[in-house]
Design a protein around this nucleic acid. Structure first.
Lengths: 185, 185
DNA sequence: CTAAATCTGTGCGTTTTTGCACAAATTCAC
DNA sequence: GTGAATTTGTGCAAAAACGCACAGATTTAG
């Protein structure tokens, strides 16, 4: 971060944004399999060639897109490492809200199940960092079991909230989930 | 039109669109005099250099912008030359509605008075084409006087409708103004 | 009024985007 | 299943956008 910050060329930024947005849009209209590079190129109003300048193929595009958001979430986790779950969740849920269209399509039925997997993996990874089994109420439990147990729980709540169209206020969900986690971890 | 239709490069189109939109936006925020090329470049998210690749300066930009819309209106007039005013006006007012942000800023207080002048000039020009003084109710009247009389009237109605925020339905205004014109020209 | 800051217009070399063409792969329609 | 149509991935050369630097004009602040 501090080491290399070669600012991205404005054109690159714009092209990638257009491509990603077009892709997300298309994901909400048809399944991943039926999206063609051509479609993306048309929708993004970008030369087909340009897409290949940035991504290997649509799988790569999807990967990069997922990875990018996971990385953003990872950063948020770092910056919130000193907070309680209840507090940190607020930041998380804000991010979900801001990038609603992405998470919505990625978690919806048509969306790539790939994302759910990556997401759970990441959540487990993050929980792993702070989980302490040597003392407290979780003493003696299997690390793996605890991580998967709460990891899946978190993912489920986020998914439900997103696919329900954000029907409940972010801060309410964040606080309640935070309460459950702070009580257990 | 039929002769040369060298399709515009996608990048050119996008840059110019961004620049024009940024400019229109800025026009609604501050007066023309206070808008800098820098502002436009920032707002449009386009290199300052790029603006100079397309326009001499902000005056040129304004000119081109105005000219472009006037030309569009001219095309509409041609395609509607066989219609009555009541009918043709519908097409006109649709165009105004579609490009509301442009006309709105151009006719608003802060907008460049330059536009009003160009616009009136154009309307007169168009009326001139079809005006026949050799017969009918306008026999014997001064051509110039008739043109300016109704030209100004038309501009005024359009201006009032636009600056009033399109409070009345386009088709109503179009039809009523059409009635007045069909009765007189 | 003066100094600092900002904006302007332009030259220049670099990077990115683009369209086109093409062969191979895939999908679609019948 | 076969043939037509579409999509894919890539090479290439031209066009556009870019950032930077600079000197001069203009604006802003004290």
């Amino acid at each position: 971060m501090i080491i290399k910050m070669a600012k991205i060329d404005r054109r690159v930024q714009k092209s990638q944004d257009a491509i990603k947005n077009a892709f997300i849009e298309l994901m909400s209209e048809k399944s991943f399999d039926h999206i063609t590079i051509q479609d993306i190129s048309d929708r993004a109003n970008v030369g087909r060639r340009t897409i290949y300048d940035h991504y290997m193929d649509k799988f790569d595009l999807l990967d990069k897109l997922i990875e990018e958001h996971i990385n953003e979430l990872r950063k948020l986790c770092e910056s919130a490492s000193e907070l309680t779950f209840a507090e940190g969740n607020m930041i998380w849920f804000e991010y979900f809200e801001q990038n609603y269209s992405f998470f919505s399509t990625m978690l919806s039925s048509k969306g790539a199940p790939a994302f759910r997997k990556s997401f759970l993996e990441f959540v487990v990874e993050e929980l792993d960092i702070d989980l302490d089994l040597t003392e407290g109420i979780n003493q003696g439990l299997s690390r793996n079991l605890v991580l998967r147990f709460f990891g899946a729980a978190i993912v489920e709540i986020v998914e439900a909230w997103i696919t329900n169209g954000l029907s409940e206020p972010a801060d309410v969900v964040a606080r309640q989930m935070g309460q459950l986690l702070d009580r257990n971890l």
